[in-house]
């Protein structure tokens, strides 16, 4: 098995999940509690990766990240010549966008399930919105958060289309485990492909089992 690819997949999944926690959990709070008219539109944008073919998102990102795209230009200026295409950083940004619904949706659902009267009780007791979020909402939504973390981690680990479109197949930089299977099949090395495929299969199964275990905790409470 391609251990370098595995390490890269793990690293990508880890930084993506971490980034998702920072962006996705507050976003989930907004989705769960906002009364804004923009909410359905934003929810749709977040959910898009669930239905779009990875090639569509990958194509947009490839164009946007490229030297001609404004994102690519901006990033190039910011980093002094860095590129988002065919680089780990590019994969990172793409994975965050692509895995967003896998974190936001379970977290938002568990937050929306917290009775409003608990937040109201906190407000009357003098807690502001942020304090209420940290002291009441986060602890009560933890099964959803845990499940979202595991889901987005597993999803990033198994991602293929977007990675191939944005990152290509650079060993040690963008060649993740799923791409290494594709490589192995291309070069007719079915043994290696099988080993890697079984490995990913088992790993994903374990991660999903964990996610569902957390979700069950949510229902039981």
């Amino acid at each position: 098995m391609d251990w370098i690819a595995f390490a890269l997949s793990l690293r990508l999944a880890a930084v993506t999940t971490l980034t998702l926690c920072l962006i996705g959990i507050p976003l989930a709070g907004w989705v769960a509690y906002s009364k804004s008219r923009l909410r359905p539109a934003l929810e749709a944008v977040i959910a898009l990766p669930l239905v779009l073919p990875p090639t569509v998102l990958g194509f947009f990102l490839l164009v946007g990240f490229g030297r001609a795209g404004w994102l690519g230009q901006w990033y190039g200026r910011l980093t002094g010549g860095g590129s988002l295409v065919f680089s780990f950083e590019g994969l990172w940004v793409a994975s965050v966008l692509y895995s967003l619904p896998f974190l936001v949706q379970p977290v938002a659902a568990s937050m929306a399930g917290i009775p409003r009267r608990l937040r109201e009780a906190a407000w009357v007791l003098g807690a502001g919105r942020v304090e209420t979020f940290v002291r009441i909402v986060l602890p009560l939504a933890w099964p959803g958060i845990a499940s979202g973390i595991v889901l987005s981690f597993a999803h990033t680990l198994g991602e293929f289309g977007v990675v191939l479109m944005v990152g290509g197949d650079v060993p040690g930089v963008t060649r993740t485990l799923s791409i290494s299977i594709y490589d192995a099949v291309e070069s007719l090395d079915y043994g290696l492909a099988a080993k890697t495929a079984v490995f990913l299969f088992v790993l994903s199964f374990l991660l999903l089992s964990a996610a569902y275990w957390f979700q069950k905790r949510l229902l039981v409470r």
């Binding site: 009775p115 009267r117 109201e120 009780a121 906190a122 602890p139 009560l140 409470r221």
Partner: peptide
Amino acid sequence: DQHDALFPH
């Protein structure tokens, strides 16, 4: 509140 609204955690 009518339902007490105690924080369950």
